[in-house]
Structure formats: C-alpha cells, structure tokens
Design a protein around this nucleic acid. Sequence first.
DNA 1: TTCACACAGAGAGCACTGCTCTCGCCTAGA
DNA 2: TCTAGGCGAGAGCAGTGCTCTCTGTGTGAA
Lengths: 226, 226
Amino acid sequence: MGVRAQARVDTTEAIKQTARRHLAQDGPNLSLRAVARDLGVVSSAVYRYFASRDDLLTALIVDGYDALGANVEVAEARQPRGDLAARWFALGRAIRAWARANPHEYALLYGSPVPGYAAPRDTVEPANRPVLVLVSILRDGAASGTLTVNDRLPRAVRADLAQLIATPEFADVSPAVLARGMTAWAQLFGTLSFELFGRLTGAVTNYDAYFEYQLKAMGSYLGLHR
Amino acid sequence: MGVRAQARVDTTEAIKQTARRHLAQDGPNLSLRAVARDLGVVSSAVYRYFASRDDLLTALIVDGYDALGANVEVAEARQPRGDLAARWFALGRAIRAWARANPHEYALLYGSPVPGYAAPRDTVEPANRPVLVLVSILRDGAASGTLTVNDRLPRAVRADLAQLIATPEFADVSPAVLARGMTAWAQLFGTLSFELFGRLTGAVTNYDAYFEYQLKAMGSYLGLHR
DNA sequence: TTCACACAGAGAGCACTGCTCTCGCCTAGA
DNA sequence: TCTAGGCGAGAGCAGTGCTCTCTGTGTGAA
C-alpha cells in the first residue's frame, strides 16, 4: 500500500475512533464539526473521508456489528461443542456484556433507526453475525437430536421460515426449531433493550440475576437442557 | 375556565397536534421552528407554551403513552373476563395496531431514548397503563386458578419481584407468574420492535401471521390456554 | 531528477437549528 | 375603567450539516 493510501486509512480510522468516543460520551447526536475540532481539523476536511454524517454513522454501525459479532463468536467458540446450553449462555452473556460496555453503540444498532436513515446493504452482513452463532447452535442441536421441539406452525409462518431455511446459512434447521429460535432472539433483545433503555427502573434492581434468569428461561424454551 | 386559560389550552393542543404531524411525516428529528412556521407563528412564540424542544417531546410522549394505554384498555375490556387468552390476544393486537399506525411515536416511546433525555416523572405513570392491563390478566388468572406456572426463581429475582408485588397494582400475583409475564412482555416488545425497526426484512414477509404466532407462543408460555 | 497533478486541508459561506431577550400591543379581569 | 400580564414579533447568538473554491505539497510517472 502506498504512503498516501496508508495515510488515508489511518485518518479514516482516527475519525471513526474519535467519533466513537463522542458517541459514547455525548450520546447519539453526533456532531461532525465537533469530531473535526477534536482532531484539530476544519469540518470540511472530514468530508474528504465521509460523504456525510450518515455515512460516518453507517461506518460506525458496521464496525459495531463487527465488534459485537467477533465478541460473540469467540465467547461461544470457547464452549464445548456438545454443551448447547453453555453455548447459548455464552452467546447471550457476550451480547449483554458488549451492549453494557457500549450502550450508545448498542442503541445505534438495535434502537430506533436514525431519522431518514435506511440501513445500507453493507450493514446487513455484519448484522447477521450474532444470528449465525445462534443458528449454529440450533443446527448442532438438530444434528445431534438434542433439539426435539416440534410445534405446529401456521402455514404463512412456515412458508417464510422455509424460504429462510433454503439459504445455506440456515440449512438443516427445522422450521419449528427456527421459530422458537426467533422467539428467543426477540425475547433476548427485548430484555436487553428494556434494561439499557431504562424501562425496568423501579422493577428490577439486580440486572445480572434478572438477565441470567431470562436467558435460562429462553434456553429451556429452546429445548437446551443442561 | 377563563377565556385566556381556554386559549392557552387550545394553542397548546394545536402545537402538539402539528408537532405530532411533523413527527409522523419527517421522523424523530422534530424541528420546533418548522412547527411554529406551520402554525403561522414565529418560533419564539412556541416557547411561551413549551420551555424547550425536549419539553414538547415529553408532552408528545405522555400523550402517546396515554393513547396507547387507552387503546389497549378498551380492546382488552371488550373480551369476556373469563377468557384470559382472548384478553392476552386483544392486548397484544392492540399494542401492535397502535404501533403500526403511529410508528414514529412508537419509536419515541419504546426505541432508544432521545439524546440527553431522561424520562421525567410525568411519563412513568401513563407508561404503566399497558403493563397494568397485563397484570390484571395475570391477577384474574391467579384468582381463578387458571395460571398454574410455578417455576423456581433465583433468590435475587424473587426479591425484586416481591418488592414489586408489595405495591397495590401488582398485588395478588405470584412471583413465578409475574416472572413469566415479564418474559412475555419483553418478547412482545422485542418482536414488535424487530418488525417496526426493519430487523426482520428478508426473513419475514407475512408480519401479521408472524406476530399472531409469537403472541400465541407467549400466551401458551404464560399458561393461558383457550 | 524533474514536474504535473491530484489530493488534503483551510476558509468562507448558506441555510438551518434551539434558545434568549427585548419590545411593544392588547385584552382579560379586578 | 384601567392596568398588569400574557403573548407574539423580531433580532440575535452559537451551533449544526454541507458546499465550493483556493492553495500548498507530496506522489508517482516521465
């Protein structure tokens, strides 16, 4: 890589770095000018690297998904393959740990979408990384015969799930298991969002215990028994 | 009420009305100046009625909670008292219907909290209205002996729930039932947020069927059988 | 080794925002 | 009747995102 290209990569990274810091400190209304000021540079210079504030935000979102995905992957990979429950717990805990460490980034990824912002294509692949970890657990459970749930599904739901299972990433998972997986997934992020967005203040004080309990409940619901 | 007081109420309502319209059309970055312009008034005039943009947003949030709460209450009240499952379905469907009709308001209420915004006390009571509808279902189920779930709860979780049950609104609900209620609640809003925030695009096409199925799954999880 | 050129940053500027302050009008209510 | 106070207008401040033009300089080709 040429010197100039390297410099471009470096400053791009520096901009994202300070933008992330601003995000963590001042919340989601990220000011491009403030970031530029922090870098000792005039605001228009930043536009050499990001076409707009939304572009910068998108870059942060992609990085966020990747960071979360990487965290989740290594945490889950540390568990013995055969212990599906342990893998599920590791998955859930890793998501929560990352979310609590980066609450504003979490809000960016999983909160209400930013103004006119439509998630660009670049974000969907990294966004799927944590999902694929869950799917790998479900697939292994199906293969080993551990996951035995077999609910009746409405025709329309079954059709959508069949479409999904036709893709290579979701192959070999039964519709009923996948349906429960999506239930648990929504529950997981619902619980986490409740916690991080302050919707449980006054009701829950011990969030660790609460989350563990919910995780266990959903683990059982999935049919993952220790 | 004097003429002046009446006029004040009227313009306050007019401001909120157009603000709501702007919210629905242009998304969450509500511009006070644009609202003022729309009312044929200079921006500083609006400050006679709302101390800040955040104050106006708070008013909209309170109204939103109240509108949602009212919707949910009447929908649930229409069901026969003894049919707990029907009441649960009515509750869930009413929430979704309102959310889909007012997606930006839903995002305001249940999405990531606005910038430096800390939910003022005025919002917590209306925010609880939908919750109390669920609690009434759980209470009736406990009283009639229909709800029989009795999971073991971790000590810390049980302690938090006991605190909650000590309040009059939650009286007579068993900790185990309440725990499942909170699980289902998080699942419900998780599913709804996934739908409204576009997190299911590519996976689900028939959202009605999908939501119905999730609602039914959580109804069963709560122990509400038809 | 030389040198054109493209790239990065500076700076001015536009249209917009939230919010403040001051100035008057005008009427509601004592 | 008459005044205190409510209310809108208007100017202004500091900030925002974004655009455009200008210029120095380092790069990579000749």
